[in-house]
Design a protein around this nucleic acid. Structure first.
Lengths: 225, 225
DNA sequence: GTCTATAGTTCGATAGAC
DNA sequence: GTCTATCGAACTATAGAC
């Protein structure tokens, strides 16, 4: 069952070991797939940017499709293992807990710009790859249960810490306010005629803006209802 | 300067007149580009679904690129002419005004499912086409000034109707909460294991959930700060 | 493991008859 | 305006030498 010190061809090993060529290909594939999408990406370009021969792509991975899926999996793994658990492991009050989650999301998106376009291409295509990637990841990270998130939201609602309602809408609020501004960046830069630095400034103030919305709502005049 | 009663080849005419073939191609192009994206779409498939010969695509439009851009323009035109003006023409109080805008957005997205993937493909690609499309549209709809929106938000903030802050963050809140849940639909359906009807139900309750967030914030315990 | 050479397709676009 | 036929380019994938 034991393998030698180099990953074999077509291996799905996850550890950073493996041949250097293999990881260089994955790195180049990330950049190019994020830029052009699966259909727009060219295996020649990936090989060139990785500094390897094009045939190496077919030796280390089976074909373009397998290369793409392994690349996708390696990145969404980070979300599942680092970002997602923050929903559960925090031992804080409701407010600090939610705002910490928002901060983790915003920080992750600011540090991993390629995730943005990779996710958008997948969403646009309807997520045919994502379902399989998610199944793989959920199976490989056994301590992760989606239901726990909603249980904890329900607990917070029951304790009166957050307003009662559908936990999924609660979840959608947080996801929307954090992810969308990053996703729509090129569109908004175009509409608002912003330079690159201006949008970074806007994103730097995003956390406080969301906190203000969560704390006070949108309107100054105290509500009727 | 006057043209005969049929649109000529490569004409950028916008009125619904023109040859029936031309509009059928645009309709088929919408569906197929929304499904596969620009790089993934095949001119043969578009021609087949339109029930015309493939050479007609090159007669009525110059090439694949021009067909795509005209298709995009025709759809985003609707946003510019029908959705966007609701930001300015409403003669309501701040709360009703914002919630009406949210309702218009949600309604538009629910009725135009193809817009979702068309927008996502463009966002993923970084919006190279969108800039040109927007410039074209802003020029063709003269009574539309982006600055007016932020002026009116500033006015509402000055009058104490909405909380003071960066108007762009205010704008991002509204866009995020309405657009993202539609954009992320396939991903969330996959994660949450939802049937098609369940997500529609969730979107039907979206307006009220956003209104509650805007009215009361996210937390029950009245804020500190 | 890495390279060259090439097979085998697919696709966008055009020419030209009707 | 619509069709057929076809060109030429681009691309994925494989075979096989080293």
């Amino acid at each position: 069952m034991q393998r030698s010190d180099t990953s074999g061809p077509h291996s799905g090993d996850e550890d950073g070991r493996g041949s250097d060529t293999r990881s260089r290909i994955l790195e180049a594939a990330t950049i190019h797939f994020a830029d052009k999408g699966f259909d727009g990406a060219r295996t020649q370009t990936i090989a060139d940017e990785a500094g390897v021969n094009r045939a190496m792509l077919y030796y280390h991975f089976r074909d373009k499709e397998h290369l793409y899926r392994e690349m996708l999996t390696s990145h969404f793994q980070v979300i599942f293992r680092q970002v997602f658990p923050t929903f559960l492991q925090l031992d804080l009050g409701a407010r600090e807990r939610v705002l910490t989650i928002v901060g983790v999301y915003l920080g992750f998106l600011r540090k991993n710009p390629q995730i943005r376009s990779l996710l958008l291409y997948e969403l646009a295509a309807g997520g045919p790859h994502l379902s399989e990637v998610f199944d793989t990841l959920l199976a490989s990270v056994p301590g992760l249960e989606l239901e726990q998130v909603f249980e904890q939201i329900g607990t917070m609602m029951g304790a009166g810490a957050v307003r009662p309602g559908d936990p999924r809408q609660f979840f959608l609020h947080i996801l929307s306010l954090t992810i969308f501004p990053f996703a729509a960046r090129p569109l908004l830069e175009s509409i608002w005629k912003l330079g690159p630095g201006e949008y970074d400034t806007l994103m730097a103030g995003r956390h406080d803006a969301i906190a203000d919305l969560f704390d006070h709502g949108l309107f100054s005049g105290k509500e009727a209802s």
